[in-house]
C-alpha cells in the first residue's frame, strides 16, 4: 500500500497505477458536485452547451460545504464528503461524458460506477466522512462557483484550489477492483459466526 502525491490535471497512467488500499494526497483543482450538479452538467451537455470549467482536468468531490463570504471572497469553512452512493444512478454516464479521473467521496459506489472507472481510466477515493475542518485547511482558495443561485450552497459547483488534500484512500481502482466487494464477503462470513454466538448465548 503506497502513499502517492498527485497533481491535477491527472495523468491517466498515474491513475491506472493506483491500487486499492493506496493513500493519495492531491494538489491542484477540484470541483464539488452532488446530485443536482451532476444532473445540471449532464443536461447542459445533452443540450450541446458548454460547461464553464474543465471537469476532465479536475478531481470531482462529492461535497456540500459550509461557506462564508468575507470581504467579497468566498471561503470554505468545513467541507467533508457526502454519501457517494446517491450518485450511482448517473455517475457512469458522468464519467464517460466528462472523463473525470478521480472521484472523492465517502461510503463507496457500486457496479455501474466500477465498470465506468475501468472504461475511462479513473479511480474512486474515499475521504474520511466528517473530516470537514481538515478538508477546509487543505482548500487554499475558491476560484469560482457555478449555479449558486439556481442550486443553492450545498449543490452548487465550487471550484477549489487544494494543496495536499487528503489522506484519500483508493477503494475502487481503474481495474475493476473494489474494496467494498471484497469486504462484504468477509463481513458475511463474520456475521455467520456472530449469529452462532448469539444463538449459543
Amino acid at each position: 500500500m503506497a502513499t502517492v502525491k498527485l497533481n491535477t490535471p491527472f495523468d491517466k497512467k498515474d491513475i491506472q497505477n493506483l491500487k486499492v488500499g493506496d493513500t493519495v494526497y492531491i494538489t491542484g483543482k477540484m470541483f464539488t458536485a452532488r446530485d443536482e450538479c451532476h444532473l445540471k452538467m449532464l443536461e447542459l451537455h445533452k443540450e450541446g452547451k458548454d460547461i464553464p470549467f474543465k471537469p476532465g482536468d479536475m478531481a470531482l468531490f462529492h461535497c456540500g460545504p459550509v461557506v462564508q463570504k468575507k470581504d467579497g471572497e468566498w471561503r470554505i469553512v468545513s467541507a467533508g464528503p457526502t454519501t457517494s452512493i446517491r450518485m450511482e444512478i448517473f455517475e457512469d454516464e458522468f464519467l464517460k461524458t466528462f472523463e473525470t479521473r478521480m472521484i472523492i467521496g465517502k461510503g463507496g459506489m457500486a457496479d455501474r460506477t466500477l465498470a465506468a472507472l475501468e472504461e475511462v481510466g479513473a479511480v474512486y477515493v474515499h475521504y474520511t466522512g466528517g473530516a470537514g475542518a481538515l478538508a477546509a485547511k487543505a482548500i487554499k482558495k475558491v476560484t469560482d462557483v457555478y449555479w449558486l443561485d439556481e442550486l443553492g450552497v450545498p449543490e452548487a459547483a465550487w471550484i477549489l484550489d487544494v494543496e495536499e488534500f487528503g489522506p484519500l484512500t483508493v477503494t475502487m481502482d481503474a481495474h475493476g477492483n473494489s474494496l467494498y466487494v471484497d469486504l462484504r464477503k468477509e463481513i458475511e462470513k463474520n456475521l455467520e459466526k456472530i449469529h452462532a454466538k448469539i444463538e449459543n448465548s
Partner: peptide
C-alpha cells in the same frame, strides 16, 4: 488512516474554530 484523519480533523477544528463536520 481513517482514525488518524479523524483525530487530526478534531485538532484542526479545535484550533481554528471551524465546525468539525460540514453537516
Amino acid at each position: 488512516v481513517q482514525i488518524e484523519a479523524i483525530l487530526l480533523n478534531i485538532k484542526v477544528s479545535r484550533e481554528t474554530g471551524a465546525p468539525m463536520c460540514q453537516d
